[in-house]
């Protein structure tokens, strides 16, 4: 199966800019489906970015983050070709991990 995480990390010398898009329903647990039954909450709680053995960004998310979440940030201390490891865990114990090379 294709990874749920799509990530683009580009270096412009000192600073690496990271954009990530994750496929996830991010159900709040407050919405009903067409039969009137509540769709249980299902959302990513933590998303981590690691580079060269160091956490560079940690996102703690609640249900108010949009479906198929997007996030963008930048960090220093990496160079082209370094690997960025991205992993998330959700409230139902689901998780996914991927790595991306900084371009």
């Amino acid at each position: 199966m294709a990874s749920s995480i799509r990530v683009r990390a580009t270096s412009n010398g000192d600073i690496t800019e990271v954009q990530a898009l994750i496929q996830h329903p991010m159900d709040t647990g407050l919405v009903k489906d067409s039969k009137g039954e509540v769709i249980p909450a299902h959302f990513i709680q933590q998303l981590k970015f690691e580079c060269n053995g160091k956490d560079v960004f940690i996102a703690d998310w609640g249900t108010a983050v949009s479906k198929d979440p997007y996030v963008k940030f930048s960090f220093k201390g990496a160079k082209k070709g370094d690997e960025l490891k991205i992993s998330w865990t959700d409230n139902k114990g689901g998780s996914d991990t991927t790595t991306a090379k900084i371009a």
Partner: peptide, 27 residues
């Protein structure tokens, strides 16, 4: 988001070396 069912939407930790600049999408 003040009047959402739960006010806290997202919280990001910024380790040393990461720039204090974030973009995301919220409900």
């Amino acid at each position: 988001v003040a009047e959402n069912p739960f006010a806290l939407a997202a919280s990001y930790k910024i380790p040393d070396g990461t720039l204090p600049s974030i973009a995301n999408r919220l409900k």
